[in-house]
Design a binder for these strands. Sequence first.
DNA 1: AGCTCATTCAATAGAATTATTGAATGAAGA
DNA 2: TCTTCATTCAATAATTCTATTGAATGAGCT
Lengths: 229, 229
Amino acid sequence: MTGMSIRNPKQALYVQFAAVAKALGNPQRLELVEHLAQGPRSVDALATKLGLPIANVSQHLQAMRRAGLVTSDRDGKFINYRLADDSVLAAFAAIRVVAEHHSAEVERVVRGWFDRHDDMEPVTRDELVSRMKEGLVTVIDVRPADEFALGHLPGAINVPLSELDSLLPDLRTDREIVAYCRGPWCVMSFEAVAELRKRGFSARRLEDGLPEWRAAGMVVEPVLQGTQR
Amino acid sequence: MTGMSIRNPKQALYVQFAAVAKALGNPQRLELVEHLAQGPRSVDALATKLGLPIANVSQHLQAMRRAGLVTSDRDGKFINYRLADDSVLAAFAAIRVVAEHHSAEVERVVRGWFDRHDDMEPVTRDELVSRMKEGLVTVIDVRPADEFALGHLPGAINVPLSELDSLLPDLRTDREIVAYCRGPWCVMSFEAVAELRKRGFSARRLEDGLPEWRAAGMVVEPVLQGTQR
DNA sequence: AGCTCATTCAATAGAATTATTGAATGAAGA
DNA sequence: TCTTCATTCAATAATTCTATTGAATGAGCT
């Protein structure tokens, strides 16, 4: 901040734009974005989810606030952070697309971890909507229960990945299962589909996660009226 | 690269996505993106445009190539770099939007430099199209001649900012002037509009630059057939 | 073969980023 | 007022990023 001397407005603008990109240019902070896209969270809750020291998460969040990615407000003795804007999720999505196109590496990672690379094609949003109308699919939300509670697809049932094994007997074997989680590349849905297929189920991933579904203006349950939290 | 140990696929993906954002997280590299959005360029040409040492620009370009932002191919003794994808421009745009929303600083920069903050509202693309049909506007492209030559709006005349003063007498005073340049925040069009107004013209900026116009699928002159360069 | 010249490489120093530690802050509740 | 506890601050070391310099590469040309 002190060593930076800006000579012209053009430079000043690039510095501003670069600051936003820089704030997104860190794996931990991207993971924070993905979690905050599920709903507002306290520093403590985020640190638990990511398995990182609280002070570390606090600093990342402050860096993100400085760049305009998140805002915060106090609730009792907790401070809740949330994404500043839908534009933040859009920027994350745009960056993901660039990485996918340069996908040699991204695809290698996914395929390297989940050997079944046949028919990993995801279900599109439109496709899912029409199949839901026909009642042909079971939609499972593989996120943890607390995230499910903040909002989920209409009619979806919560099958956290950690409890997939124990809940398997409850799933119908005569219908296709569509799994989704936090976002297009959220690995939990990859793992759930791989596991389900190993057990003989017909299963696919939804191309998006809940935040994208919500951002597309689709209905989310439970429908909360009044102030959105 | 060597000190990085990745334990799980989730982490590996965030690292990939973060690498893309990191490559965009530098003012100089963003300026390179904006210039490359006008058309392919050699290292030398870019270094001249930015006023930076060639070796420095070369290193930035290599970093961008590693992140999948640009590609390069040799032409004689020059190596031409170009944007890898439309998605790169889209990502840049998305980042700009985030910065605009957090606009306290961005807007302050623009307003601080150009005191006329009344009616700096830009002309939208649709608005310009309909007014062009009616023949009500003079469209000027304030970029340097070499960029204009690679492609420009139909019917636009090239008035490089550096030559604005000397070309002023050629401009009609009875029609509104719409100026555009490299992108939505390219400062040359701001400066051109400010100067034109000072001289009594009725002038506004186009909301976008040429790359956005092209990306929207609009006609660009000259229309080149065959291999796009 | 030898020369030219655009680009890349290699080495360096200075600056910024990151994770870690422990202490400080400050709001809530007793 | 005192205690609790979520969060922030401050200081540090390790790593990474950045700009700069001069040498090396390697394709085109004579």
